[in-house]
Nucleic acid binder design. Sequence first.
DNA 1: AGGCTTATCGTCAGATCGACGACAAGCCAC
DNA 2: GTGGCTTGTCGTCGATCTGACGATAAGCCT
Lengths: 225, 225
Amino acid sequence: MYSPSDFPPFAVTVDLVVLTVRGDALCALLVRRGEAPYRGRWALPGGFVQVTESVDAAAVRELAEETGVSGLHLEQLGTYGEPRRDPRMRVVSVAYLALAPDLPVPVAGTDAAAASWVPVGEASSLAFDHARILGDGVERARAKLEYSALGTAFCGPEFTVAELRRVYEIVWGVSLDPRNFHRKVTGVDGLLVATGGTTSRDGGRPAALFRRGEAEVLYPPLVRP
Amino acid sequence: MYSPSDFPPFAVTVDLVVLTVRGDALCALLVRRGEAPYRGRWALPGGFVQVTESVDAAAVRELAEETGVSGLHLEQLGTYGEPRRDPRMRVVSVAYLALAPDLPVPVAGTDAAAASWVPVGEASSLAFDHARILGDGVERARAKLEYSALGTAFCGPEFTVAELRRVYEIVWGVSLDPRNFHRKVTGVDGLLVATGGTTSRDGGRPAALFRRGEAEVLYPPLVRP
DNA sequence: AGGCTTATCGTCAGATCGACGACAAGCCAC
DNA sequence: GTGGCTTGTCGTCGATCTGACGATAAGCCT
């Protein structure tokens, strides 16, 4: 057992589903492939896991290499291991989900020809099985907004209740009553911390500014209509 | 890129967290290791992924080989890829969760010295990082009972409301009001289908028998107290 | 028959939810 | 500056849901 001839050779990669809210759309960070196969196609950023690093660490490293950002919340989405998902060899890929505030346009990474934010509705015909992975990531993000405080990860360090509501509306694709949303979100204890400041960057009456609180779990949850 | 010398050699395995309710305890299916390292220790069942099969298929195959059962709901739990989790070589393991009804004592599998159901509270000092994987599996199972119909997977094909309640009580480690539980569980539409039969196997007034319904998601959910 | 068990239905007060009215507080056009 | 427009925040109301718990049903055992 466990001698090199006993197990088949696998390559292990990480793929990153990095989502943000830009304009009116939920967008994913995609890179355009510079090499065959699927040359010229959009793909999720990612890369090989090194021998010396954990799989989680590889995800953090690839995220930094391809987007230049760090400190985002990263969580495992799932592992994709169909035998033919990469036509060249057997690759098992661990997918991660990250939610980011609206970042400047990403720089093209080391391996990628170009990187950019693409609305998830327009992200079709991705390389490999990345369309499925992206779909799973979007669905996971939608579900997580219900019972976790991760919606605030889409916002900047200080944000208003309306900005948070816009995140929910865009990710879920619904419209929410501003008054009920305000009541519920300010009622969850530990979710929001008032900074004392206000802003009127969206016009109308100035809105109070908040920071994320300590809460990770929303109780009671915000349920999708 | 992608030539054999470009990527480090990984072995990919699957590990199975198979849970059941036996007697008064939530139990996990464990095997006693017959080989070094961790010889004699309890470990999760599992094994290598073959080149020709998907990772999911490997989980199904290993489950059948080690427990003799099939048809269980299997879901990915997570992937564990710390560099030193196996002292001999780099192994990335994809963990799966399965919930089973109270099965006959499992036969020892092909690779295992012995297999048996062990209460999760007594499952300490497992091989590798299996204690952590088991813990994650138990926590996932507890959470899934809240909003999915998977609690019925712990029961036989026909069961009473009280048997389902006992599952919830044992998995969550709490006691639930029989009357409120009955109201809620029979109120979720599509969860239970009355077979028309009754049983008095637990003494007292005969209880109505049910089968699982079509519902996968519980709405409204059953929240932990 | 009476007592024990468990199953199932009902009641009631408090919490929660969605729909929506009302008012606050800025900006802008005139 | 005043009236209108925008957006933010607080309140109200009826419907619904929840948890605590009483009451009854329907079997078994002695």
